[in-house]
Design a protein around this nucleic acid. Structure first.
Length: 111
RNA sequence: CGAGUGGGAUGGGCAGUCGCAGGCAGUUUUACUGCGUGAGGAAAGUCCGAGCUCCGCAGAGCGGGAUAACGGCUAACGGCCGCCGAGGGUGACCUCAGGGAAAGUGCAACAGAGAUAUACCGCCUGUGUUUCACAGGUAAGGGUGGAAAGGCGAGGUAAGAGCUCACCGGCGUGCGGGGAACCGCACGGCCCUGCAAACCCUAUCCGGAGCAACAUCAGCAGGGGGAGUGCUUUGCACGGCGCUUGCUCGGCGAUACCCCGAAGGAUGGCUUAAGCCUUGCAGCAAUGUAAGGCGUAGAAAGAUGAUUGCCUUAAAUGACAGAACUCGGCUUACAGUCCCACUCAGUUU
RNA sequence: CCGCCUGUGGCGCAGCUGGAUAACGCAGCGGAUUCCGAUUCCGGAGAGCGCAGGUUCGAAUCCUGUCAGGCGGG
């Protein structure tokens, strides 16, 4: 499996928000934009409105677990940003995975 | 059995598969394999107190802040323990910023005659003398108020009054007990409204900033703007600038510097610590001490997730909740379960 | 990590050097005006001051703790 590369800089997140295409769901929002790095990179955003530190950590872990199972199917070079929503903290990673698969397929990341 | 008071513990366990972080060892030279480790009682709030680091080792005065019966514990504390006093509860027990109002200033609305000094209705005496008016004495009674000048009874008096006396309360002195706060007894005289979580006074304590501290290496290594006065140059003095807690004095720094902008990476700090458990001893206790044993979370966009089975259970599909330099406390949140000590009432024995 | 501010009817806000009906505007309700509506006028209702204690005769105001929201700096 390919190594998972994360987005670090605030500029990279802003680039995805402004230039990327998005799909939304009550459980998850996905932004995707093509990059020049040659591999897929991902970032996770959980706002403070989502909940306390425990709930934010859980959202991040669930999203990362779902992406790690789908990362092998991604083709091309994309920067992907996932944003947790209010319902994310009550779900499981197995609930997130079909949502994420559908959104990535609509955006063209998964063939 | 019921109602309750105080304190403590726990916060499911075991195993498998996929995946994550960092440690050690090996293969080997950059990834893999193996081994063991990987959130809490509050990690939280950041309310106190310290360690540690830097500020030229931090000077003086004013200001500011915190604490407040007494004794002890502690590295320290606004914490804890014991004890005294006040208040609440039938009780176990709980609560208390609990110094000073006799240094001074201020406030006490409304009501009431009067709020720190008074005389409205009264009572008594005298004069005029018809109801009544005036002058004086008095503060027992009435009414107002949270509070009216110690309370209550007796004597006393024209009427009254600590004016006198007994008891109670407060104050002062002496004696006794106690380590102290304080308690008890005796004597004395009758001077005291409340508020200091109003200003204030007294006593004690407090230099500032915080791991984004700080140290080393690498990198940038220089863009724009502003940069006095006097004396004959060197230089000196004043001023300005920066640091020194808010202000003043004093001190230090560089002839340079100051402001804006750019760049902000890596390593250390970083986990063994006033550490935890058991037992003994000292102590009412907090705590101290001796012996033995245990003793790697340490990331840096930030690690614990997903899933399966079995067991315990009323329930395991889960209460509050995620370390960010580290400790000691306080406060707050918390599904359920268990344990210890004690109180009250009833019934039974 | 440090410093600071604000919580008062449905909404915005005043009162906060203690003294009792917690003021005002908008919205909402009833009535008048109109053929009907808007405008205008009149009237009444709706908070007990984020929460819990304390000081005081008396607390929205003072003090302590706590909860929630927000701002600033490194």
């Amino acid at each position: 499996m390919a190594e998972l590369i994360t987005l670090n800089q605030n500029i990279e997140f802003r680039h995805a928000y402004n230039r990327g295409k998005s799909r939304s769901d009550p459980a998850l929002i996905t932004y995707a934009v093509k990059n020049r790095a040659g591999v897929c990179r991902y970032g996770i955003t959980v706002s403070k409105k989502t909940g306390c530190a425990v709930e934010r950590n859980r959202c991040r872990r669930i999203i990362r677990a779902a992406y790690s199972s789908l990362a092998g199917e991604c083709s091309g070079a994309w920067d992907i940003v996932f944003v947790a929503r209010f319902r994310t903290k009550n779900l499981k990673s197995t609930d997130i995975e079909p949502v994420m698969r559908r959104q990535l397929k609509e955006l063209g990341v998964i063939a």
